[in-house]
Amino acid sequence: MDDTTYIVAFIVVATLATFATRAIPFLFLGRHHEHPLLLHVGRYLPAAVMALLVVVFLARSGTWAAPAFGADALIPSVLVVALHLWRRNALLSIVAGTVVYMAIQQTQLVNL
């Protein structure tokens, strides 16, 4: 698949997947929306998905071998958690964490 075909296919698939999550309740779930299994999964799946995305992408963004032991990714992550618990401003937490991560990567602070 060349680059143009890939990006077109990607946008079509991503658009359909996103639209599906918004349209399914109107198409199918009208009658079942009181089912306790659906309510249970609906209540807890979003939280589980966020946690698993954090772990998967955090694992991919850190240097886990000695001598860094993942500090290059863990330090900005802790900053994001602390800032967000303190100010609860999503944009501030995200920008601050990303800037610190970029500084660490670009200056090789942790991996010397």
Binding site: A47, M50, A51, L53, V54, F57, L58, S61, A73, P76, S77, V80, V81, H84, A90, S93, I94, G97, T98, Y101, M102, A103, I104, Q105, Q106
Partner: peptide
Amino acid sequence: GIEFALVALFIVLA
């Protein structure tokens, strides 16, 4: 390192 924005976003959403 700008790709860390994704991790930060997921931490915030979690």
